[in-house]
Computed example of a mutant assay.
Amino acid sequence: MTHLLPFLISLNILAILWIAIKRWEGYYEDMRFAFSTLTLLFFSQFLDLPIFIPGSSLLVLTGVYVFNLLDKEGMIERVLAFLMVGITLSFLGGISIISLRGSVPDTEFILFLVTIGTVTGLLLHLIRKDAVITFVGSAMVMWIFIYFGIRVDLYHLLFAFLFSLILGLISYRERAVEITGVVAGTMLGMLLIIFGDIRWFLIAFLFSLLGSIFTRYRFEAKLRAGIAQEKSGVRSYRNVFANGLVGLAMAIAYGKYQDPIFIVGFLASFASATGDTLASEIGQTSRDQPILITTFEPVPPGTDGGITVLGELAAIFGAFILVLAAYIMGMGNGYCIIAAFVGGFMGVNFDSLLGATLERGGVLGNDGVNLLSTAFAAVVAPAIFYIIQV
């Protein structure tokens, strides 16, 4: 198969030239698709990346076809059809390409790659509905995880995927998340379980559960005051990644290096996200007027960077509940839990500081603030961990 790569690359170059010279008008999408295929083939040839990845990611697009074909069905049925067809065909295509090269396929590892690739492809399709982005995005994610070289047990993989997906669909039924949030949460949950274990996922799920519960706390009153969250607090993929991406990075790093410092960073990032959510949802209902964290001037409820005593207490409660759950599940010793709690609470107030400065100034949006504040907590907490251990 490798000796065919120069031929395939040449064929794609000819196709691009033909479209560009003879038939450019009306064939822009063909040009993009040919160029993206050419790029992936170049990567396989010159960067020594597995050739089965472009083939598998190309077959992920069959999920797009089925998804669009079932346009009269419910969203859950269409999502499940995409995943079923995309994972099955991309898996069969991957092992077929490897077998044709005369090698013995590692079926468990390939199944992991095509599963995460198909979930990525589904999320990209829901966000952009662009076949090229879906194709290239799924391939890039599969190649990224080849770098980590994680060995995944088949039953472990199936449990992680199905457990995360089922809980996500239940949350969708309860209108706690959008369908993009379900897919993003499935990806996040699956990787947390694989690189960590079920406890890491349960921490993320606890954050999501508390967020959903307290978003509805006195919701009608917040709605009348004009300070309720958009879409009744229903989470999208943006919310999932803004609050969970740093924690996922900590889990992946822990899976590769097995250093407990990444447990501290993980717990602190989710303690920060949980504390911030509760501080916002409960603090906005305070009878006391908020003050700006930077100048201590009174500001209207809902103002970015505004804090109240009730909100600070809610932040402490949220961060404490999360680290307490981690301690009960045996995720760390007392030093680890204390560092995660303190770092998480500091992350909440760093969030308020960013809100009062960069967010009010239009430099960052709410998701960007959440991402940076969880990253801040994940950096500060390990430093605290080392200091208190001495």
Score class of each variant (00 low, 15 high):
residue 327 Y to M: 13
residue 292 L to T: 04
residue 298 P to S: 05
residue 15 A to M: 06
residue 328 I to R: 00
residue 43 F to A: 12
residue 4 L to P: 13
residue 90 S to K: 02
residue 27 Y to N: 15
residue 219 F to I: 14
residue 309 V to W: 15
residue 13 I to Q: 05
residue 139 A to F: 01
residue 364 L to N: 14
residue 13 I to H: 05
residue 108 E to Q: 12
residue 155 Y to L: 14
residue 112 F to D: 00
residue 355 G to P: 12
residue 196 G to F: 04
residue 164 S to H: 01
residue 22 K to C: 12
residue 137 G to K: 00
residue 298 P to E: 06
residue 190 M to Y: 09
residue 69 L to I: 11
residue 234 V to E: 13
residue 324 L to Y: 05
residue 374 T to M: 03
residue 10 S to H: 09
residue 257 Y to V: 09
residue 296 F to D: 00
residue 371 L to P: 01
residue 255 G to S: 04
residue 351 D to G: 12
residue 208 S to D: 12
residue 201 F to R: 02
residue 197 D to E: 00
residue 263 I to R: 01
residue 20 A to E: 08
residue 234 V to A: 13
residue 194 I to V: 09
residue 126 L to Q: 03
residue 309 V to F: 15
residue 1 M to C: 05
residue 12 N to A: 13
residue 132 V to K: 09
residue 315 A to E: 12
residue 299 V to Q: 04
residue 172 Y to D: 01
residue 150 I to R: 15
residue 31 M to D: 06
residue 341 F to G: 04
residue 232 S to P: 11
residue 15 A to N: 09
residue 325 A to E: 10
residue 121 G to A: 06
residue 373 S to M: 03
residue 257 Y to P: 06
residue 64 V to P: 09
residue 128 R to H: 13
residue 330 G to E: 04
residue 232 S to E: 14
residue 300 P to D: 13
residue 6 P to N: 11
residue 292 L to P: 02
residue 305 G to F: 11
residue 5 L to R: 08
residue 376 F to R: 06
residue 47 L to K: 03
residue 16 I to L: 12
residue 128 R to I: 05
residue 382 P to N: 09
residue 218 R to S: 14
residue 31 M to R: 08
residue 280 S to T: 12
residue 14 L to E: 01
residue 246 V to S: 02
residue 64 V to W: 11
residue 376 F to G: 04
residue 161 F to N: 03
residue 245 L to R: 08
residue 146 I to C: 00
residue 55 G to R: 07
residue 15 A to H: 03
residue 287 R to T: 14
residue 77 E to N: 10
residue 216 R to Y: 04
residue 284 Q to Y: 14
residue 19 I to M: 04
residue 240 V to A: 10
residue 357 T to W: 15
residue 17 L to V: 04
residue 314 A to T: 12
residue 249 A to H: 05
